[in-house]
Design a protein around this nucleic acid. Structure first.
Ligand SMILES: [Zn+2]
Ligand SMILES: [Zn+2]
Ligand SMILES: [Zn+2]
Ligand SMILES: [Zn+2]
Lengths: 159, 159
DNA sequence: CTGGTAACGTTATGCAATAGCGTATAAACT
DNA sequence: AGTTTATACGCTATTGCATAACGTTACCAG
């Protein structure tokens, strides 16, 4: 089950929840129990999570959630900048630095499925320049790089 | 119905079909009637086209196509590099320069829905540098910039 | 004309997302 | 406290996107 890049992941989860708590309080948004549970599920690892997997997990936990329940929670979490959608996977990933106003750029390993969020200034600048050159006013961007992460390159045999 | 950036679009279509013809012949791939018809439909404009719209059009043209028929044709066209999928729209767009080995970067106008394929060297370089810095081996990229195109910015009142 | 392969048709199903409506509940005001 | 209002949540149903699995046809090589 190992994370190759081993770390105490419970800290990731706790930090994410605490940050969410803080931001929502600050903004007067309601971080309800359902929303907290779903954010926690998304943070179970560093892989993107699918909506129907969340549904299944909710079902396991006793309740009887239906699709709109999950999608509404995801919409809320996205509006608050707590999670991002990975368009090329139809899946959702927790944002490691919510609050910062930032664009999302992702490295997605096709072997171990780990998703890493980038913040490359050079990349951001290049995007803005490309848009400027075409007189194009950017409102949002989808930037998803698929390939093989450093770990999976080392451990060739894995997966 | 106007293209704002008016041009003789029949030339776009003819060029695309001719190029497809040429490339497939060169490669020994079979550019069948169905595939040609679907490529033509996708090239009806510079907007991305949805799979089920293609289905509907095929139905109109008499036949009784089912989803797999369309998706297989799309898969073929994508493998040959003749069309690209826009992940953030679940839709498909013709490639204006198939044959060139290239990555795909798109400007997508949320007003008029026009999709423009970019080839920014600076952007390509920035992507590669970002990946290199993380020791990440890129295999494919999804780079879709949404916003408002130059035309739609001029014609504020439109749409 | 026979056997192989690729394309296409057909049926069915699975996963992704939303529509529309009703109910519960929490904040905000009187 | 009682009323109002907005928000969250539950539920049923439907739509949209995509593929599985299998059968049939077209075509080419031997
Ligand atoms: Zn972690
Ligand atoms: Zn990996
Ligand atoms: Zn054109
Ligand atoms: Zn436009």
């Amino acid at each position: 089950m190992g994370h190759s890049h081993s770390h105490d992941h419970s800290i990731c989860i706790e930090t994410a929840i605490a940050e969410a708590e803080r931001l929502c309080a600050e903004r007067g948004s309601r971080f309800t129990d359902l929303r907290r549970r779903i954010l926690k599920m998304i943070w179970q690892g560093h892989k993107a999570v699918k909506a129907y997997d969340l549904l299944d997990q909710l079902a396991t936990e006793g309740g009887s959630a239906k699709p709109p329940t999950v999608y509404r929670a995801l919409d809320f979490l996205m509006e608050e900048g707590l999670v991002h959608k990975i368009e090329s996977l139809n899946a959702y990933i927790g944002c490691p630095h919510p609050g910062d106003n930032h664009v999302s750029q992702f490295l997605i390993c096709d072997k171990c499925e780990t998703v890493k969020e980038l913040s490359s200034d050079e990349l951001t600048t290049a995007v803005m320049n490309a848009a400027k050159q075409a007189n194009f006013a950017i409102r949002r961007q989808t930037l998803e790089l698929h390939g093989v992460c450093a770990n999976c390159q080392r451990n060739r045999e894995a997966a």
